[in-house]
Design a protein around this nucleic acid. Structure first.
Length: 127
DNA sequence: AAGATGACGCCCG
DNA sequence: CCGGGCGCCATCT
């Protein structure tokens, strides 16, 4: 097999827990889930968890801006499942204003390196 | 132990 | 709006 069956690291537990809280008819994003789980910089790992943990409402997790971040076919299925539970699309994306699930409160940021508070390109002076 | 990976996110042109 | 690039970071090989 390719990867470990159920690698239950704290990160996986926290992230899958957050994903499970997204109710039917609502959606969230990789980044939001990561933050809610206490791992603000681990948006990428959310996808990994969705892949390895069975039983998660994977279709409710979207990329930033409410866009589906899966390959064509899988994207079709995700959209289909979401529409089936009442989530509607505006073009290629879901209107997060109306369907995004708001997590109560992000657990205390797990031991993530303090690093900089700046985001994305900004922490790179590039000059 | 070092390098590669990836269901991401953000900025730029 | 879209593609190109790079930063993040836990896991996997």
């Amino acid at each position: 097999m390719k990867s470990a069956p159920t690698t239950k690291t704290p990160l996986v537990t926290a992230i899958s827990g957050a994903i499970r809280k997204v109710p039917r008819g609502r959606v969230s994003t990789y980044g939001a889930v990561a933050r809610a789980a206490g791992y603000p910089r681990c948006a990428r790992h959310v996808g990994r968890v969705l892949r390895q943990m069975p039983g998660l409402p994977w279709q409710r997790i979207l990329g930033s801006g409410g866009r589906i971040s899966l390959s064509r076919e899988a994207a079709l299925e995700q959209r289909f499942l979401l529409e089936a539970e009442g989530v509607r699309f505006s073009g290629r994306r879901v209107d997060l204003k109306r369907f995004e699930h708001h997590f109560p409160a992000a657990a205390r940021p797990a031991k993530v390196k303090p690093k900089a508070k700046l985001t994305g390109r900004e922490l790179r002076p590039k000059l």
